[in-house]
Design a protein around this nucleic acid. Structure first.
Lengths: 224, 224
DNA sequence: ACCTTTCTTCACACTTTCTTAACACCTATA
DNA sequence: TATAGGTGTTAAGAAAGTGTGAAGAAAGGT
């Protein structure tokens, strides 16, 4: 049975979510604000977290940030309409998906299933981009079936790029996921690590393309 | 190739749907009543199900209910006019959309595409104006599903226009949002960036219309 | 404590993007 | 037709962003 943690300050919303999720067999924990939510997350180790962005005392973003320093639990964001910027920020900090209030229960459950399945497949997990293969379980990378040695930072970096292969990943997205809970400007170092990765991957594997002023994009070798 | 399952008791309707969908490259399975439909769904694992609400022996709602106990496959409801209550009920039980008989094939195919895409793609914050699509998370822009490369300033500019598409945005409004905290007169540069955007978007996408003395307006290609 | 590995910082060359400026154009008005 | 205000277009210098090598700092293992 999956455990779900609901972090929302409105009791009515918590009750609704509890009903919907319990009917699907979830075991429910609730928290009315951010600090409590983090506490519950640490204690009960839920399999998925539903996080409201409009919390009192501590913003949802802040909760997510702290959470991501030590946990990879799937997080579904609950937001109201017209918070586009905040939603983008939440996804950059590693939220998995979001639904907009008010939402249909069918949509909510579908998204929950999807993000949980995504994490689950990552327990025996690998990401493949062209000739590059990342073994997330053993933190090993191979190119053309030949193993290449990556440092932890390099691995975290290529992982972010590979998860979004073909799409641009902004520098903020990268930095927030590779160096969680860091406030110093890391964009200096980012360039260096990108440089190292390019050297190790060479010309035969996927290419790390720079989009000036925005970020980077991992492109499978075969594509245009 | 996508697999589609048709659950309908009228043979004539099944034949019609099969023709339409096969011409679109779907692989078709059929079932004449609810129990058979569930069986086929479990066995073939279709990518989408077309479900008639007026079934004998087991109602469409009942089929949907049972289906949703173990599957998240997108379901398109086929209903006749004057079944509003049933349609609402179907949506509450997790149907994705419905069409009313008799329906046009174009509408049917369009809805199928939409609900399938909705299931499998992660929802990113995006703005869509006609053929133009802005992905706010990845800072990507595409026109006719083809990616176009925009610089950061260009992206910020088209974003402001797209958020207010159809409406006039004054030059001051634009400048304040694209160059926040700037006091030097930026209206010189604005014209240049507008020019670049027009070139990159060409004649097929939305048009940037100038309203002399006031500002600009983004107009979706189809409108007057 | 030592050595090794990894990370960060810095300097500088290079590339892309932005801003500025000049001028052509378009439209309304006298 | 002349004039003026606003706009479209182009080009070039300025600014910002990026690639790269190396060296010092930090972390980890022995």
């Amino acid at each position: 049975m999956s455990k779900a943690l609901i972090i929302d300050d409105e009791q009515q919303m918590r009750r609704l979510l509890r009903m919907v999720l319990e009917s699907r067999g979830y075991e429910i924990y609730e928290a009315a604000d951010g600090p409590l939510g983090l506490q519950e997350a640490a204690f009960h180790r839920p399999d998925v977290i539903l996080l409201d962005l409009g919390l009192p005392s501590m913003s949802g973003i802040e909760v997510l940030k702290r959470l991501r320093e030590w946990s990879d639990v799937p997080v579904l964001i609950l937001s109201v309409r017209d918070q586009e910027n905040v939603k983008v920020e939440a996804l950059e900090y590693g939220a998995d998906d979001y639904v907009t209030k008010p939402f249909g229960t069918a949509e909510l459950l579908a998204r929950l299933t999807v993000i949980q399945r995504r994490r689950f497949t990552r327990q025996n997990p690998e990401i493949i981009v062209g000739k590059l293969r990342l073994d997330l379980l053993h933190h090993e990378a191979s190119l053309n079936a030949e193993q290449i040695k990556l440092t932890p930072t390099e691995f975290a970096l290529i992982k972010v790029l590979a998860e979004n292969s073909g799409r641009i990943v902004t520098q903020n997205q990268i930095i927030r996921q590779v160096w969680p809970g860091q406030q110093t400007d890391q964009s200096e170092g980012l360039r260096v690590h990108i440089n190292h990765l390019r050297k190790k991957m060479g010309a035969s594997g996927p290419q790390i393309i720079n989009e000036p002023g925005i970020g980077y994009r991992l492109e499978s070798e075969g594509e245009s």
